Computed example of a mutant assay.
Amino acid sequence: MNEVRLVIFTRFPEPGQAKTRLIPALGPEGAAAVHRRLTERTLQAARQSGLRIEVHVTGARAAAFAEWLGDDLRLVAQTDGDLGARLQAAAAPTPVLFVGSDLPDLTAAHLVEAARQLDAGRTVIGPAEDGGYWALGLTGPADYLFSDMPWSTERVFALTVERLGRHGIEPVLLPTLADCDTPEDLSRWPDLRALPTGGEAASSGSGLRPRTE
């Protein structure tokens, strides 16, 4: 399991740049605070999983991310381009497990199970309720999954499974999870709005070191 790279994409919680679809409900500062909390939750689960973590970042210098998330993480600058280009650039070496950073219900158990399947040589994918996927685990090159994909639509999961099938791969399906992207989503996780600006890690002993500006 230690060979699996857990790759998480996130951006710096700069007001006006993070979780922009939440701005109409929460304002720029509130939306950025939700993004901060979700990323911190994801890193807490990742640390508990025992996997090798890579955080692919954008929006600030590495030092700012280290101050926010802790200096024990491998930080990698995201490449330019759409999500497909960024996934492809981060896909080698395998096995690799891509996981979103906006999943309130993600647990270490989800990650451990995905890594167990990857260790057994199986491709894995975690369906998201909105038609995308929250996790993708690969055991070898799969560039055909990343180009000409209608990202941010309800077709992503189905098209990904279809393309895998064309290459003779039947992925293991992980549990379906939901991400938090829109004001409507907030009603499912009211604690995301109620937490203090410093983030839940400040009081949970998770080892994260959120910025306090």
Score class of each variant (00 low, 15 high):
residue 119 D to H: 11
residue 95 P to Q: 03
residue 116 R to C: 00
residue 120 A to E: 09
residue 127 P to Q: 04
residue 11 R to H: 15
residue 115 A to E: 06
residue 157 F to K: 07
residue 208 L to G: 03
residue 144 Y to R: 06
residue 28 P to D: 08
residue 36 R to I: 00
residue 119 D to I: 01
residue 76 V to Q: 15
residue 52 R to N: 13
residue 120 A to Q: 10
residue 177 L to E: 07
residue 62 A to P: 13
residue 178 A to D: 15
residue 70 G to R: 12
residue 4 V to A: 02
residue 142 A to S: 07
residue 72 D to Y: 08
residue 153 T to W: 05
residue 181 D to P: 02
residue 192 L to I: 14
residue 41 R to E: 08
residue 66 A to L: 00
residue 82 D to H: 05
residue 109 A to C: 04
residue 37 R to T: 08
residue 161 V to E: 04
residue 70 G to P: 15
residue 57 V to Q: 09
residue 117 Q to R: 07
residue 10 T to S: 12
residue 189 W to Q: 05
residue 1 M to Y: 13
residue 203 S to Y: 12
residue 100 G to A: 15
residue 190 P to F: 09
residue 190 P to Y: 10
residue 26 L to N: 11
residue 144 Y to S: 05
residue 152 S to N: 15
residue 27 G to T: 04
residue 20 T to Y: 09
residue 124 V to G: 02
residue 94 T to I: 03
residue 12 F to A: 06
residue 154 E to R: 14
residue 96 V to G: 01
residue 25 A to M: 06
residue 151 W to S: 10
residue 160 T to V: 07
residue 180 C to E: 08
residue 133 Y to P: 02
residue 7 V to N: 04
residue 211 R to A: 13
residue 83 L to H: 13
residue 101 S to F: 05
residue 58 T to E: 15
residue 201 A to S: 15
residue 197 T to L: 12
residue 93 P to G: 00
residue 108 A to Q: 08
residue 103 L to T: 09
residue 20 T to R: 15
residue 53 I to L: 12
residue 71 D to A: 15
residue 118 L to H: 04
residue 33 A to T: 05
residue 193 R to G: 03
residue 115 A to W: 04
residue 11 R to N: 15
residue 14 E to A: 04
residue 129 E to R: 15
residue 101 S to Y: 06
residue 176 T to M: 11
residue 150 P to N: 05
residue 70 G to Y: 13
residue 18 A to H: 13
residue 80 D to K: 10
residue 118 L to Y: 05
residue 160 T to P: 09
residue 192 L to Q: 12
residue 186 L to M: 09
residue 171 P to V: 00
residue 121 G to S: 10
residue 17 Q to S: 07
residue 104 P to V: 05
